[in-house]
Write a protein that binds this DNA or RNA. Structure first.
Length: 655
DNA sequence: GAGTTTGAAACT
DNA sequence: CAGTTTCAAACTC
């Protein structure tokens, strides 16, 4: 079909052409990040950062963009691209590719962590990483790397490692900016050690043949980011998530993952592994089967928080003004240390939110009581647990237990706090003012804490209580069950009935809330696509400040729903893309093609699309409306593009 | 650091 | 599904 003259002609007529690349970073970001901010805890923040990287990446190595084997449309596009790629950077198809990959990226981001819950062990395999998916993507990237290197070399005898690495990192597609950063740091370190040789792409490939050895050696790396990364990796190295690790090049990623038992234990634990995967893969081998890592990125969130801490420090420097006003969620207060040093120290000591330690004595760390286990990570040294089974050695036990728990409650490992993207999308800026845009999945059941202490999961997660909560005397500073978010009234009310001591504490809380409100009001009221990224970033940059505790992290982006959404979204992407391709054609055909896939892939049937609480329980992105909105927004950002592109409406009916 | 409080998780 | 028990984090002193 792609060979068809008609097809080519249509392609050449694509209305997208005019838009072409986005010289202006802002504009570029605006294109992709129209997605709901609240849903993603982390990656979002650096959306613009990431985007730019993506943009670059896809321009430099076009073939890396659309290679999702599972997506016929994309594949087709890929072919067409390769056929015409020479044309020009501005080629429509490239634009499409970029768009597609960005969508993919977004999808991944949206879906972030989580648990494939539902026990669907094949979930992972269903989460392809389009840009890197098919054979060669990475090789190409490697070649690009080589080029870069050659370039550098040609210019001077002593390569500019920094720029080289920087370029390299740009060429690689990371699951997250953090991973990219980590990669960069790592490479820099290596370069400085003069041991690492970027003599050629091959070298790059052999740098880290296998797993953790290199990572272990990373200990020597002074870069905090890497150090943190390393620590995280070491600690969270859940075996069941290392599929890509031991895998060699695979022609079919999906198949590989499916055949890998490791892929079977998906769930949340992925986070740190994700980083591991991404960093390792990037570092070690461009030709490595990256798809899995890409897929695994699902869980980056949590792990990201660690690196993010580091990155934030930098980020904070550039956004001092804004950040100073950014409130911190109570739950994260402790992390909001005034001095970066302090923060670092704390993180180093393993007390970062992402570096939970448990102290289990009777559960063997095999129950949800255990924070580590619940978070899907192995316990590590810093943990004070007794008789711990949550260790790689007992992988089998861990996996079995997880399965068992999941069978009992498919959402057991899903994030507890759901950042409701929908509300954000629908209410626009209002959402940014509504702390309640995120909710605890199941709600709390507090009786005595008034939802004002971390005993309360809602409060701990930095979200308000909702109708789902069965709490008594709710005074959640983030929003009460009755819907009223805390305000001066509440403050007074509370003051009246509390001792001076508690009053002080509450005052503090209220201040925080007020500050938060203030910060929100500072946000652009009319989030134009261009500012969108800012909106998204703000919370992030404030960092992890705003980043809720583990659960939230997971919830933020993650979760079991992830897979769902991805499944659901993927079709969206292809659909949209295909539509773009044949803008003047009917879409029915596509719909017919995709539908089955959607149905088949919908892994987590239990994800309460039915439940009244479905919206909250299920990851926001899963909702077709959500993705639709996202796409719609995005399209909105792409000004010219959508003019001749069939609107989304058609998507909904197909679902 | 020990003891208490609290509410989620697990169990019945 | 409700009640009870277990558990470990959060909190207090």
């Amino acid at each position: 079909m792609q060979d068809s003259p008609v097809f080519n002609y249509i392609n050449s007529l694509s209305p997208i052409r005019p838009v072409r690349s986005i010289p202006n970073p802002n504009q570029f970001s605006s294109l992709n990040f129209t997605s709901p901010p609240s849903v993603f805890t982390s990656p979002h923040l650096n959306s613009s950062h990431k985007e730019s990287r993506f943009f670059k990446t896809h321009n430099s190595s076009s073939s890396s963009s659309s290679s999702d084997p599972t997506n016929p449309v994309e594949s087709r596009e890929d072919e067409s691209t390769s056929n015409e790629d020479v044309v020009a950077e501005g080629d429509d198809t490239k634009d499409l590719n970029i768009d597609a990959s960005m969508r993919e990226e977004e999808t991944n981001r949206d879906d972030s962590v989580a648990s494939p819950c539902g026990g669907d062990t094949t979930d992972l395999s269903l989460v392809p990483y389009a840009p890197l998916g098919e054979n060669g993507s990475f090789e190409n990237a490697g070649m690009e790397l080589q080029k870069v290197y050659d370039n550098v070399q040609g210019k001077s005898e002593t390569p500019d490692w920094e720029s080289l690495i920087s370029d390299a990192s740009e060429l690689l597609i990371f699951d997250s900016p953090d991973a990219s950063e980590a990669f960069r740091c790592f490479m820099m370190q290596r370069a400085s050690n003069s041991e690492a040789r970027f003599s050629n792409g091959v070298e790059v490939q052999t740098m880290q043949p296998d797993s953790n050895r290199e990572l272990e050696s990373a200990n020597a790396i002074p870069y905090e980011a890497v150090s943190l990364l390393h620590r995280g990796i070491r600690r969270r190295c859940l075996d069941f998530e290392m599929p890509g690790n031991k895998q060699t090049l695979s022609e079919n990623n999906t198949a590989t993952c499916e055949s890998s038992s490791r892929c079977v234990v998906p769930s949340i634990g992925l986070h740190l592994n994700a980083i591991l995967m991404s960093s390792k893969d990037c570092k070690s081998s461009i030709s490595h089967d990256y798809s899995c890592s890409g897929k695994i990125q699902v869980g980056l969130q949590s792990s990201i928080s660690t690196l993010q801490e580091t990155l934030d420090q930098t980020e904070n420097e550039t956004r001092e003004d804004a950040d100073q006003d950014v409130p911190v969620e109570p739950a994260l207060q402790e992390l909001n240390l005034s001095s970066p040093k302090k923060k670092r120290v704390k993180l180093d000591s393993g007390e970062g939110e992402s570096c939970k330690r448990c102290n289990c004595k009777k559960s063997k760390c095999l129950k949800l009581y255990c924070e580590c286990f619940a978070a899907g990570v192995y316990c590590i040294e810093p943990c004070s647990c007794i008789d711990c089974f949550n260790k790689p050695i007992h992988e089998d036990v861990v996996l079995a237990t997880r399965k068992q728990i999941e069978s009992r409650n498919p959402l057991a490992f899903a994030p507890k706090v759901i950042r409701n993207s929908e509300s954000v999308l629908e209410t626009g800026d209002d959402a940014s003012k509504t702390p309640a845009s995120a909710r605890h999945k199941r709600g709390c059941n507090c009786k005595k804490s008034n939802c004002l202490k971390k005993y309360c999961e809602c409060y701990q997660g930095g979200v308000g209580c909702s109708i789902n909560c069965r709490c008594e005397g709710c005074k959640n500073a983030f929003g009460r069950k009755d819907g009223s978010s805390i305000d001066m009234e509440a403050e007074q009310e509370e003051e009246n009935e509390t001792s001076e001591k508690s009053r002080t504490a509450k005052a503090q809380q209220n201040i925080e809330v007020l500050m938060r409100k203030e910060a929100r009001s500072d946000l652009p009221t009319t989030p134009t696509p261009i500012y969108r990224p800012e909106l998204v970033q703000l919370p992030f940059s404030s960092s992890k400040n705003r980043m809720p505790p583990p659960q939230s992290l997971l919830g933020g982006g993650s979760s079991s729903g992830i897979f769902n959404s991805q499944y659901l979204r993927k079709p969206d992407i292809s659909l949209t893309q295909s539509r773009i391709e044949k803008s003047s054609e009917t879409v029915a055909e596509d719909g017919a093609e995709e539908m089955p896939e959607i149905l088949i892939h919908s892994p987590i049937p239990n994800i309460k699309s039915v439940s009244p609480n479905g919206k909250r329980v299920s990851p926001p992105h899963m909702e077709s409306s959500s993705s639709g909105s996202i796409l719609g927004r995005r399209s909105g950002g792409r000004k010219l593009i959508l003019q001749s592109i069939p609107s989304f409406p058609s998507l909904t009916p197909q679902h």
